[in-house]
């Protein structure tokens, strides 16, 4: 990358062989699409971009955790359910029980981390395939969310002992998370997402743990025989994914001003799509948080462009499916 190769064709080849280039190209394509179908100039308004970023943030948080697990050679199907479980827990604690954020936030983070660690422990310790272990956690966490909420949305309408409802104020921590900073130009959830992405990037790119995770994803047996603590490293990856799902769950609760036990269904698939569009390979050992950031923007903008053009939900889903395939096809590594 640093020295210019002699042959121009070779330079172009190497340029396109870089997954970051291709992820950027996919993003550029989507932005170009937005410029063409700009919905009478709506795409050029600052507010549109702000919203696109805000709406992509929850998915981006899940995708960061998903990247860690996928790079380690696994998959985490539980993130959508963990998000719902934490959204419900956070709402119960903050709205119904009136607990201070200093108690509620760490507890919620703990719940998410524990869910991830258990799923990780099942795959690492008991050799259950990641798909199965996290599928089980996905079902379990969803059931847990429904149990503690009695299957009802946990909102500011609180049921009294006599069966009537009274309304309480939206807790301050909810309003804080749902607010904006920098003169209303940056949503706090986006800020939270960016901070979490930066932390995940640092851990993956600069900490020993990250390098060991790549090694496990690339060749688990070789990593083990090189002295990598395989089980611990994997469990930490799943725990981190659970932790980020918990952060996403609290953001989701704050934005919806309630804890919906049905929320986040299918989010794990969006998160996987983001990771894959970014160029992190599902086989493990390759990829990174930077790529996932690009993938988040690509999917986020795509959703936004479709919505400002009032494309109906049904067509939107079909179109998203097609675009995922196209993006992945263009990213496929050329075989030597």
């Amino acid at each position: 990358m640093s020295t210019p190769p002699a042959v121009a064709g070779r330079a172009a080849e190497r340029f396109w062989a870089n997954p970051a280039t291709r992820a950027l190209a996919a993003l550029a394509l989507v932005v170009l699409l937005g410029c063409c179908f700009n919905a009478q100039g709506a795409f050029f308004k600052l507010g549109t971009h702000r919203d696109a970023l805000r709406q992509a943030s929850v998915f981006g948080l899940l995708a960061c955790g998903m990247s860690l697990v996928i790079i380690g050679g696994g998959i985490d199907l539980a993130v959508g359910s963990v998000l719902a479980l934490v959204a419900v827990s956070f709402s119960l604690m903050s709205i119904h029980w009136g607990w201070a954020p200093i108690v509620a936030v760490p507890l919620c983070l703990g719940i998410g981390t524990a869910c991830g660690a258990v799923a990780g422990g099942l795959t690492a310790g008991f050799r259950i395939q990641p798909f199965i272990a996290t599928l089980a956690m996905m079902v379990f966490a969803r059931g847990m969310a429904k149990t503690i909420s009695s299957g009802m949305k946990v909102s500011t309408a609180v049921k009294n002992a006599d069966g009537a409802y009274h309304y309480v104020d939206v807790p301050g921590v909810f309003r804080l998370i749902d607010s904006r900073v920098l003169g209303g130009n940056l949503a706090v959830v986006t800020l939270i997402f960016l901070v979490c992405a930066a932390l995940a990037w640092i851990a993956l790119a600069r900490h020993r743990w990250g390098r060991q995770l790549y090694a496990i994803g690339g060749n688990e047996e070789a990593a083990r025989l090189s002295g990598v603590p395989v089980n611990l490293t994997k469990i930490l990856a799943y725990a981190a994914s659970g932790l980020l799902a918990a952060v996403a769950g609290m953001c989701q609760a704050a934005q919806e001003q309630q804890g919906d036990p049905e929320t986040g269904a299918g989010y794990e698939l969006t998160a996987i799509a983001i990771v894959v569009i970014g160029g992190t390979t599902l086989t493990g050992g390759r990829g990174g948080i930077g790529l996932t950031l690009l993938g988040t923007l690509t999917i986020g903008y795509l959703e936004k462009i479709l919505s400002i053009n009032a494309v109906p939900e049904a067509s939107r889903l079909m179109l998203t499916g097609v675009i995922i395939v196209v993006a992945v096809l263009t990213q496929r590594r050329q075989r030597a």
Binding site: H207, R211, Y214, A215, G217, N219, S226, G227, G285
Partner: peptide, 24 residues
């Protein structure tokens, strides 16, 4: 290929994989 090296990782990453605790 099966048990010695992590093929998708760089030469540097592979060469230092066994000694990471000491290098970091």
């Amino acid at each position: 290929k099966a048990t010695g090296l992590v093929l998708p990782l760089s030469i540097v990453a592979n060469a230092t994989l066994g000694d990471l605790p000491r290098l970091s």
